Computed example of a mutant assay.
Amino acid sequence: MRDFIADTLALVLFFTLTGALNERFIVGMSWEEVALARAIGAPLMVATARPYGLWRGLVMGRAGTGTASRLFWDTLALLSFQVPIYVGIIWAGGAEGAELWRGALGAAVMMLALGRPYGLWLDLVRGWFGLPPGGQKPMSVDTER
Rank of each mutant, 00 (worst) to 15 (best):
L17V: 14
R24S: 12
S140G: 12
L131C: 00
L13I: 07
W128K: 00
G61R: 02
S30H: 09
R50C: 10
A63R: 04
V87Q: 08
P133C: 06
S140Q: 14
P51W: 05
L76N: 06
W73C: 00
I26W: 15
P84Y: 09
Y52V: 01
M1A: 14
A49T: 08
S80P: 09
L21M: 11
I5W: 14
R38L: 14
D3L: 15
R62S: 15
V83L: 06
A95P: 06
A92F: 13
F81T: 00
A10R: 00
R126P: 11
L114I: 10
Y86R: 09
F4N: 12
P43W: 01
I26L: 15
L76Q: 06
M110P: 05
D7T: 06
G61V: 08
R62G: 14
W73E: 03
L17W: 08
L58P: 07
L44G: 12
L58Y: 13
A37K: 10
L100Y: 01
F14P: 04
F14E: 02
L36A: 13
A35N: 03
S69C: 02
I89Q: 02
V27C: 04
T67W: 15
W128M: 02
E96W: 15
W55R: 06
A39I: 11
L131V: 04
V125L: 10
A92P: 02
W31C: 09
L58S: 13
M29N: 09
L131I: 07
M111C: 11
V87G: 05
R102A: 03
V34M: 07
R70P: 00
E32F: 07
I26K: 10
F4P: 08
G115M: 13
Q136G: 10
L100I: 10
L21W: 00
P51G: 04
Q136T: 15
W31F: 11
V27W: 00
A68S: 14
N22F: 12
G57S: 07
Y118L: 08
F129S: 08
V87E: 08
G64D: 04
G66M: 05
A6K: 05
E144F: 13
L79Q: 10
G115S: 11
Y118T: 05
R62K: 15
T67S: 14
W101N: 12
A98F: 14
S140L: 11
G130H: 01
F4W: 14
L36C: 12
W101H: 11
K137H: 13
D7S: 08
M29Y: 03
M45A: 15
E99L: 11
G28K: 03
G57F: 00
A95K: 05
G41N: 02
S69N: 01
E144M: 15
L13S: 07
A35G: 09
V109F: 00
V125A: 04
L122N: 04
G57I: 00
V46Q: 07
F25K: 09
A39E: 01
V27G: 01
R102I: 08
G88V: 00
V12S: 05
A108N: 04
